[in-house]
Amino acid sequence: MEVDQEECSSSVLNPARSIEGYVIIALNVHPEASEDDIIDFFDEFGKVKNVQLNMDRQTGYAKGYALVEYEKLREAETAVDEADNSELLGKRLVVDFAFLEGNEDNIQSSNRERSRSPGGSKRW
């Protein structure tokens, strides 16, 4: 079944590098999946460096998505290519890069910024 392979790959922009590697996101994660399940599954494609499997705060079950970080782009690309549309615990995953190269700006600080908008009417 060629389900929205095109629909789910962010082909227009390149994946963006995070501080320690490349982060991918998996959707449709089984509610009873554990962090170990995610690591075991995604270690197939490269060494998993970080995992975040957030819980639904009300039910305590997995919320349904996982963030997985690899050090190398090649590993992350392999995971996106091979894990997307594959099954984990009987559920079909959607896997994609989380961050893309766009026009990022990271302004750190400062007091200058804060004093300029004391009322908070224009916070950005």
Binding site: C8, S10, L13, A16, I25, L27, G64, Y65, V94, V95, D96, F97, A98, F99, L100, E101, G102, N103, E104, D105, N106, I107, Q108, S109, S110, N111, E113, R114
Partner: peptide, 17 residues
């Protein structure tokens, strides 16, 4: 004592979630 300000481009799959 600082303001942290970040902006990043995210994939449509994050938006979908």
């Amino acid at each position: 004592d600082e303001l942290i300000r970040k902006k990043v481009t995210i994939s449509k799959t994050v938006v979908k979630q």
